[in-house]
Amino acid sequence: MPKPVPVPDELSKPFWDAVNEQRLVVQHCAACDRRQYPPERVCTECRSGDRLEWIPTSGRARIIGYTVMHDSRVRLLQADQPFNIAVVALEEDPAIRFFSHLPGTPADEVPVGATVEAIFPELSPTQRIHEWQVVR
């Protein structure tokens, strides 16, 4: 499914570099032992800016809900309507949530509660993206 290609910036480059290596990482605040995603310049809890580090994730998550998009504003996605937009919560820290089209899962057949694992399809010759697939 074609998608707009993320444009890494100074803050997000480590994340997207890891995705290109087929690894999923998130920020972690060493000061308050808390993960955060999407990345921020400071910890949104303790506001510390110099204790943020990138840590690996398990790459496993659980589907906590979804919607089925029928009329997207995003031009590149319109050809594939309707499509799933699922929200998945990271297995080791359910407060961390990602979006997914759930490739391989038909629209509106989303198994809420199911375990998913990260995959990294290629979006462009230079950029992969983090997606999630139901573990069968």
Binding site: K3, V5, P6, D9, T67, L76, H101, I129
Partner: peptide, 30 residues
Amino acid sequence: NALAVAPGASQWTMPFGMVSGIPGTAFGFE
């Protein structure tokens, strides 16, 4: 929304179609 790239804050949302308040509201309601 008509572009083929997702810069800035949209890099986390637009590739997945999580744009405008609509899909997020639908998710909460589901």
